[in-house]
Design a protein around this nucleic acid. Sequence first.
DNA 1: TATTGTTATACTCTATAACTATA
DNA 2: TATAGTTATAGAGTATAACAATA
Lengths: 168, 168
Amino acid sequence: MSGPEPTLEPAQLGAYFALMEVAGLLRHGVEQQLRDEGDLTYVQFQLLARLGLDSPTGSRRMTDLADGLVYSRSGLTYQAGLLEQAGLVERGPSPDDERGVTVTITDAGRARLARVLPGHVHVLRDLLFQPLASTDVDTLAALLAPVRDHMRASPPRSAAPRRRKRNG
Amino acid sequence: MSGPEPTLEPAQLGAYFALMEVAGLLRHGVEQQLRDEGDLTYVQFQLLARLGLDSPTGSRRMTDLADGLVYSRSGLTYQAGLLEQAGLVERGPSPDDERGVTVTITDAGRARLARVLPGHVHVLRDLLFQPLASTDVDTLAALLAPVRDHMRASPPRSAAPRRRKRNG
DNA sequence: TATTGTTATACTCTATAACTATA
DNA sequence: TATAGTTATAGAGTATAACAATA
């Protein structure tokens, strides 16, 4: 009932530890920048970015927002509440589903995003991109995209407190 | 005084977001496994792994342990305290420097590590390695290693509460 | 009955600053 | 004076379960 072998190749271990450490240090760095320049946590920044950059309308359902950013519904409610208190988003009823809540970025939210973005990019350059050739960046993105898609499709197994809505 | 340009290439953005999401989902997955099968947090697991797998003697100075795992000295003291309470490590004076504290993994610590390792590897296979060809794993490790080294060398700039001792 | 979202609560973790002791 | 580590304290974030409302 155990896996094929209980060991990993050295390169696998190296990839795993490097991935986690790089992401941890990078997160630490950007969190500091976001706090200093925009009074935002990383999660809040990601929520704003999803609304302001990814979504054409600036709106999303709560459930759709959670995807990959937050691991519990109550956590998302908490963060959305903070953003709403700060005037960066608004919450309203969803047009098609009376149960739903639609979150919309405000002008202030877009302004905040614009304020932190240059510094954010600067940190990314300093920390992440500087030691990578531009071809390496392409390679990295190409390697990680399928992994992300795979992880999104496989809920943490014992967690999965609720099925999230299918994308569509 | 701002960066060269306030924008990123699409591939750069893709690499950044994919990296953070992959690491986040992976951490969530392994944290669950570690909690379920070994009553350990990820940080505690990493500390045990550094002592039990990386170090030949099973011992390290507090300062050396912190590297890349924890972002404040008090955080490390807290975690080391938890591990010591659980009987997984011991703390004693450092032989060469009277100020130092040497942390040593116990037999119980090694046993705990051995207990969680197979399941841990299993999660890594499922989540991270399955969608990657083995050549991709090598590539990923090779790409991330210099980034990690670069990040270790550049303290978060405004953070850096204390210079950490040079390696050696 | 299943899904969406909120609330209450308890808990863990983290960071800051003040402090002791040794180099 | 600088470094190693601990302690106290306060704050933020998270998850769980119970809940209300709609599909």
